[in-house]
Design a protein around this nucleic acid. Sequence first.
DNA 1: GTCTATATTGGGATAGAC
DNA 2: GTCTATCCCAATATAGAC
Lengths: 199, 199
Amino acid sequence: MARRGSYAKGVAKREEILTSALEVIAREGYGRASVRELAEAVGLSQAGLLHYFGTKEELFAAVLRKRDEADLARSEDETGTRSVFEGFRQTIGRNADVPGLIQLYVRLSAEATDAAHPAHAFFTERTRAFRETVAGDIRRMQAEGTARADVDAEQAAMLLLAAADGLQVQWLTDPTIDMAEHVATLLRLLEPPAAPADA
Amino acid sequence: MARRGSYAKGVAKREEILTSALEVIAREGYGRASVRELAEAVGLSQAGLLHYFGTKEELFAAVLRKRDEADLARSEDETGTRSVFEGFRQTIGRNADVPGLIQLYVRLSAEATDAAHPAHAFFTERTRAFRETVAGDIRRMQAEGTARADVDAEQAAMLLLAAADGLQVQWLTDPTIDMAEHVATLLRLLEPPAAPADA
DNA sequence: GTCTATATTGGGATAGAC
DNA sequence: GTCTATCCCAATATAGAC
């Protein structure tokens, strides 16, 4: 299919680089993850790595994109076995296993608030998609009576995302806090009021 | 009191620097706020400024500290005229007037998650104090029936802080979102269930 | 206390050979 | 595609004069 396999090889190499980068960042954190460091980890020179990703930021955005894909794939594997809320809570809980990645996410998202940042579009789109999906889920739950009806679904989705993001900053600062538990508390606030005892 | 006024002068100069830095950062954003830039704005050379604050990070932490003090002073001015929740909501709303400062806060807090960062202790202590104060307020409200009793006050305080932090990131990315409104929604979730009509 | 000048560093990007 | 070598830049930090 690919002529002389060169295109396919390039894609495979990119994947290899991203996987390796993911590991290094998870282990060493964002601060120590220079292009040089990431290049060495995958057995390339700095210039060699930049042949695949033009700039450092593009590389980092690609790392986060790949991680989102992995999370999504896992979620879909488990579709139907749990509620939307429960799935969200579990993803947050799993995050606590990869401090370096959380740091990448927190710091890159902070830097990418600047519209001129190469990863700005990535985060904008990610947020939009998240809000849309979660708001849809919440609306469905409201319709079937498993979520409070007196809250705007868009706003609830936004709050969920914001709280999750904010908790990650807190957790990086103090890893003893339980992100999943806090998220669970927020989700509980979104449950419909308990049915009266005589219902 | 101070011998030849030299000590008092140093303190005044520090204040002058901080005030100026606050303005520059609010206007130019975090990215463009180099020590040189901040020094020029207050009529000093870079080395001159660093005479007062040993390092860039110490300067930035001092800027945030000063801003917290200003917020606190304003809040205390208005004590008693509003509920704790309303005060919180209004502070968030005011934040939307100073994008540069929000950026400073978001980015510095992200960087300071690293325990070795010079501003780490500042954020740790700030978070602790916030949680303690807000949790206390919530407990009081629970006792008097103006907040849901079935939520842990510490967790609610944490969620409030996390949501506020996360919303700031979202807002920097897209300034059309209304932080205060979203916070208000969360606060509403913490209200006690409406009294039955026949109560 | 303040400046000028310089050291140092840390890294990203680029040119050109192989 | 990959490397070596180098460029280059932005900043902070520091030494030492005034």
